[in-house]
Amino acid sequence: MLAKVLSLVTRAIPLAIPLLYGSTGEIVTEKSGHLNLGIPGIMYIGAISGVAGAFLYEQSCGNNIENMNAVLAILIPLLACIAGSVLIGLLYSFLTVTLKANQNVTGLAITTFGVGVGNFFGGTLIKLVDTEVTSISLANTSHFYKYSFPFVDKLGWFGDLFLSYDFLTYVAIIIAIITGIILNRTRVGLNLRSVGENPATADAAGINVIKYRYVATCIGAGIAGLGGLQYIMAYADGSWSNDAFGDRGWMAIALVIFALWKPSMAILGSFLFGALCNANNYFTGYGVQAQELFKMLPYIVTIVVLIITSMRKKREHQPPESLGINYFREER
């Protein structure tokens, strides 16, 4: 029994963490009133930027793990990933905040763009390596990313359950917790929420709506991008192949609704989603076609939660009131 629970959790969490990054990022963005549907694309960009950084560093070290510095091996992909995704967040903010483009259309365009860019550079890197396989392996970098506590083995099930993950897993949870604290307990959070709820009010209160929207969208994009990197380095053992990241970005957005725009709920929600994503591995023996049905579970749960939350109609559980609406100051 214990073994079963253990395997359930330890398999669910690696699937959960990219979603948690994505939805924490999206929550930060949505709290500013911007519905960034570009998150799936931004996660691709984050992943490929990190992959490119790692690839170049590995190349410069002659593909030999002996020559690699642990700090650099982690920092270079990490910074590349953040830079890439923040840049796209900046592009999205520029289009929607400054140029007032429609948020849905812009977001969808960014997703299409991001997936395309990811696959384009992914393909290029694969070509550079010139192998017969259609993926690129960064196992050396991944090794540094997956480095875990040395004493875990001695702690039995406790170690397996809590301490056996890569460091980005813990970072994701810490970021989510900190985000929750900032949103609910600080002045910056209060200001940010007011910008998303009622920008005209925030503006009248002297809050710089444009600045908050830019910063929130860029930080959100940066956090989401890390999800892409974590997926490659930890879950996929450092191997990139085109389209492998799949539709996890969309699930992250669904998770935001599931979590009722609360980062703490997003942590629990992502674990649940991770477990549900894994469900098809537990219900075997129903044939290949049934596998696809089990993969539907996270989406069905999202829809059920949506229905339940909209039935309860509690105001605190609603999306930010001006979500998806651009702010024009002079409009009457």
């Binding site: 209060l190 929420r193 007011s194 709820e197 009010t201 009131e321």
Partner: peptide, 12 residues
């Protein structure tokens, strides 16, 4: 200024 249409955030 106290506006005719209140500038308040409803969920606050």
């Amino acid at each position: 200024m106290i506006h005719q249409h209140f500038k308040l955030v409803d969920v606050f």
